[in-house]
Amino acid sequence: MAGRALITGVGGQDGALLARLLLDQGYEVAGIVRREPAAYAESLGELRAAIELVEADLLDRDSLVAALRATRPVEVYNLAAPSFVPRSWDEPILTAEFAAVGATSMLEAIREVDPSIRFYQASSSEIFGEPRETPQTEETAPSPLTPYGVAKTYAHFITSSYRRRYGMFACCGILYNHESPLRPVDFLPRKVARAAAAISLGLERELVLGDLSARRDWGYAGDYVRAMWLMLQHDEPGDYIVATGESHSVEELVACAFDAVSLDWRDHVRSDPALYRGSAELHDLVGDASKARRVLGWAPEVRLDELMRMMVEADRARLQDAENAAS
């Protein structure tokens, strides 16, 4: 369904990858931003010239109405929310406002401007908290533990409520951890990839991490934004788990990263108990994406070792460019 698409959170990892995918599919793409468009030149790179940036505030329904009327999208992808989960404990009110109230504001704006617009809401595996079953499916009861997870659970439920109450084409993608070279260094996989790259270039010597036995279902963000798009191309709206279905430990992820530069991670990585997350660490988050496979024809294409190699190589290139620029 090519046409015009509007993305919130276009300056983030998923927003940039989704914008690129939609452009490749023949869409005209607009993105909602909160700051001057010029501030996004670095995060969007070459995409900045290809997409229209519109200033609006997710917490201001009137500004969203104006943005929708200006851009006239056939699809809206709501990806905007604070995404670094540990920080949600430091900013619980801000997290609730943008992740929960922001989704409601957008749904209300769509309902006023054009209820036929197809809407995608970025949900999260964090809604399951300490899950009651493993792997999780679309029928698994949410049990969030973090402010981020609680806010995302609200957004998840309000989206399905608008679908039922108003007949809107509104979908939620329950995405598990997904990474790419565009991830900020705050996130563990990017932190590991950058360290492996720096150590391989002789720029650093050691990487200190927390619990190496912690496990996650990690996938490639490029695969996951394809699932978002497929949801809005289907005949009927629905909610979908988007995951690899595979659980990997931090140690496995680290090994993949250091293998990419032919180093033994045990020579360079140290675990510090002071960095363990304790009760904040979630366990058994593994997604069953059978519905997405069956209904949408979606499947992840990039394995963890391929993902980490991609990220390490991107960081090696960044570091080498910085070295060359400084010399």
Rank of each mutant, 00 (worst) to 15 (best):
A100D: 12
A141I: 00
L107W: 07
S116Q: 02
N78K: 07
T134F: 11
K152V: 06
P131M: 07
E112H: 06
E108D: 11
L145F: 15
T95W: 00
P92Q: 07
L68Y: 15
R111L: 15
F119M: 06
E139Y: 08
R72E: 15
D90N: 06
P142V: 00
L94V: 12
F128S: 01
T153D: 12
V85K: 02
A81Y: 01
E126H: 10
R87I: 05
S161I: 04
A141H: 00
T71E: 13
M106L: 15
Y154W: 15
L107A: 08
E97R: 10
D114W: 02
N78P: 10
I110E: 10
A99M: 11
Y162F: 15
S160C: 11
E139P: 06
L94H: 08
A100M: 13
D90A: 13
T146F: 10
V150I: 12
I110T: 06
I93Y: 09
A80E: 09
A151L: 10
S116C: 07
E97T: 04
N78V: 05
T159Q: 07
G102T: 04
T137I: 03
G102L: 09
R118K: 12
I117V: 15
V150W: 06
G149A: 10
V101Y: 09
V101E: 05
R111A: 15
L79T: 00
V113Y: 01
L68Q: 06
E138R: 00
S83K: 00
E91Y: 14
E97M: 13
S125N: 08
D114S: 11
L145W: 10
F98S: 08
L79M: 01
D114K: 05
Q136F: 07
A81V: 02
T134Q: 07
Q121V: 06
A99C: 14
A155V: 07
V76Y: 00
R72M: 14
S116K: 03
T153P: 09
T146A: 12
G149E: 04
D114A: 09
F119A: 07
S83E: 00
